[in-house]
Nucleic acid binder design. Structure first.
Lengths: 366, 366
DNA sequence: GTCGTTGGTGGTAGCGCTGTCAACGTTCCT
DNA sequence: AGGAACGTTGACAGCGCTACCACCAACGAC
């Protein structure tokens, strides 16, 4: 019969307040807005909470405040390495603060995305991170109507719902093709898997570049809705060779495909880059390690996730970014699979306008 | 003035009940335990809910019931492909039911794990999935005391907190070495990165196998705490060659390292498998596609995640498994990087006891 | 000295739902 | 026929916290 408690023995805010000699509401304020308290009470509540081992009840808080401290994240895939880097950035940025991440995967279906969005929104999240800019009209309307900050990631486009962080897959693909043009390649194949909107835009960039150069040929394109894999890269390359035996290079819409092409070339004893040059997309870690090392378009995935979560949290807490749309750019990383052929060309970064488009990042705020 | 509502215009359970002509509590029961209602009322509530577009308030539910419908998942890494497969299984299994997944990563730190565990437990999760069996004493105590089902995944061990699903990394490593022995290899190197508990147990298995055969040599082992990567595989292999130039084969504690070794061999013009045989671990997709194709120990990661979530949900809902510890086994997949040398050996699965230890899976319950 | 203003504090009244228990009608058993 | 047992329903009282508003002291402006 010592201290007053609920039957469960759980420490509630009321116990902390009593222990600190303040009213419950003052104790409550301590956790939400400590600056509003006098220094003396702040210290008293703090030590009382620590002493009692108080753990706030999030459900009660959510119920009373009509808000949660959950950041919802919708990504299309958990398998794809690309997203794991982004996720790592998001989790890193959300660590150490009050927000918790709730992750769902849409499996590349915008209908599934719409469903999950509805689910998330019903929980009144503090903020939302969604992948891409191709939501259904319904989803878009829900996002517009949501009373929390929204971050769209992975690419940038004309009509941000709220904030946006990514890069132009179209420009990146054009830069990749420009790089191959520079090396003197003309019969450039395209290999694409999954063909989600971002891969589609890479294809668009490829087509535009080829058409501009008067080199477009439908037979150079092999694209499938099948999920990507290294094995698939070999298979698609085989298809490409059958359609267009005279190709001199391949642009792979992602690095797994590029690795598959590398192995398929080994199998067929096709010399890289002498007979076929290869360029991938994303610049995953293994690209620098392969034999020969593989050229790729580097994208800033970790940074994208980290910045997205950081900006989102800032926005949730009222610190709106001066610039809601951030282009993180990309960079063609030239390696042995597509080396400069002409000795007069500058080494390293190519001269093509967009090819070296690294945007300076605002410094991290902590 | 029309229907009675809260100021926000939100549909609450009370509105649904009124619309259906039942009491709020009956409506509540409809969502938790429909079988308890008479067929007539069930239908009335159902249509009322649908008509009004009712969305339950999870915070209120959690507050009143002292429970949530969150399944907490603690994994060491988001980058590692191994976990992304497991996660995919978990998400797949949790789809379509009421539970939502809350993911956190411990970054391979058991102290961080303990901290996160405390955080999760405070939220009264419906269930918890944790990685491995090497929790701190404190963590273990918390898990034991938790009033929700607990699932430990990735490996199996002697003292399950509750349920457990995985396989023996020790046995799997022994099977890998047994396979190399069968091909006549004697100077077998070991390459390990990160050296988390599971990799450590693979090393233990390697050492035991080598000692049993009288072939153990400390100079055959190269292990580092550095996170794994393909590039690292090449570097570790370089170290190994410097320490033991006479090796005839390498057991890589994961497939990224194996791929790095493959490339390093290419660079050094070492013939695989003639000069060096390679065996990896996990059997990631690219292993079957490499040139030469790479032998590996297949582990059932997706299945592990799917089964873990399925069994956990069953346990949450009172359907306790007859068998709380499930060994999903492994299988040595023999490929070109370590082909059978003796024509008299049986093809495919080796004869070694543990080498082909695939446990039959209980059929999925839906 | 009065008035407004500010910073700090507390009281009241819920947030939307469910646990508990009581009560009812119906069926089945003896 | 009486009673137990069951299935179904409802009333009530919170769960633990915060929004809202009221209040009080301290201060400066006039």
């Amino acid at each position: 019969m010592g201290r007053k408690r609920t039957k469960s023995g759980k420490i509630r805010l009321a116990e902390v307040a009593e222990h600190a000699g303040v009213s419950p509401i003052t104790a409550s304020r301590f956790f939400r807005n400590p600056e509003a308290l006098s220094v003396a009470k702040r210290a008293r509540v703090e030590s009382a909470a620590k002493e009692l081992g108080y753990v706030p009840n999030l459900a009660a808080r959510a119920l009373a405040s009509h808000r949660t401290e959950v950041i919802g994240v919708l990504i299309p895939s958990l398998t794809n390495n690309v997203f794991s880097d982004v996720l790592r950035g998001i989790y890193d940025a959300s660590e150490g603060n009050r927000y918790s991440i709730q992750l769902s995967n849409t499996r590349y279906s915008i209908l599934q995305e719409e469903k999950l969005l509805r689910l998330f929104l019903a929980q009144k999240p503090a903020g939302l991170i969604v992948t891409g800019i191709d939501q259904t009209a319904e989803s878009h309307a829900m996002l517009e109507a949501a009373d929390c900050p929204i971050m769209q990631i992975m690419e940038i486009g004309p009509n941000p719902v709220d904030m946006m962080i990514g890069f132009s897959h179209y420009d990146a693909a054009r830069a990749a093709i420009a790089h191959l043009f520079e090396q003197g390649h003309r019969r450039i194949g395209f290999l694409g898997a999954r063909m989600d909107p971002r891969v589609q835009r890479r294809l668009d960039g490829y087509q535009a570049a080829m058409k501009d150069a008067g080199l477009f040929d439908q037979r150079l394109i092999v694209a499938t809705a099948t999920p990507t894999s290294v094995t698939l890269g070999g298979a698609l390359f085989t298809d490409l060779l059958a359609k267009s035996p005279d190709i001199d290079s391949v642009f792979c819409a992602n690095d797994d495909l590029a690795l598959g092409v590398l192995f398929e070339c080994r199998r067929r004893e096709i010399a890289i880059p002498e007979q076929i040059a290869i360029i991938g997309f994303n610049d995953l870690e293994f690209m620098a390690s392969a034999v020969p090392t593989l050229t790729s378009v580097r994208t800033n995935r970790y940074e994208m996730g980290r910045m997205a979560a950081t900006m989102l949290i800032d926005a949730i807490e009222g610190r709106r970014p001066e610039q809601p749309v951030l282009d993180l750019g990309f960079k063609v990383i030239e390696r042995q699979s597509s080396p400069a052929r002409r000795s007069d060309s500058r080494p390293g970064a190519s001269g093509a306008g967009a090819a070296n488009k690294m945007v300076a990042l605002p410094s991290s705020h902590d």
